[in-house]
Amino acid sequence: MSVTPDDVRRIARLARIAAPEARLDELAGELNAILTWIEQLDEVDVDGVAPMASSVEIALPMREDVVTDGNIRDDVLANAPRSEEGFFVVPKVVE
């Protein structure tokens, strides 16, 4: 499997990172170098092996369904790039 400049354009769009056309070839080269190295995993037989998502084998804890937080509007907005009258200000989403 080899990553093409078109693939990079698609991945970058999925990742919401602007990738200038002029850099697509270079990025494809970098990603291919890493992916080719990663493909040595093909040598490992994993038939019948269950995937491991976490090294902690405990059930996720449950807690009471109660409010533990809140009434901290100003804290939540304190680091907003733009806010007005207690709201986040974002680019227009709906036409």
């Binding site: 499997m1 990663i38 995993l41 490992v44 994993v46 092996v49 269950a50 995937p51 491991m52 998502a53 090294s55």
Partner: peptide, 14 residues
């Protein structure tokens, strides 16, 4: 091919 495979190899490493 990548992510699931890696999770399986991870278990073998453990």
């Amino acid at each position: 091919a990548y992510y699931l495979k890696a999770q399986k190899v991870r278990r073998k490493i453990r």
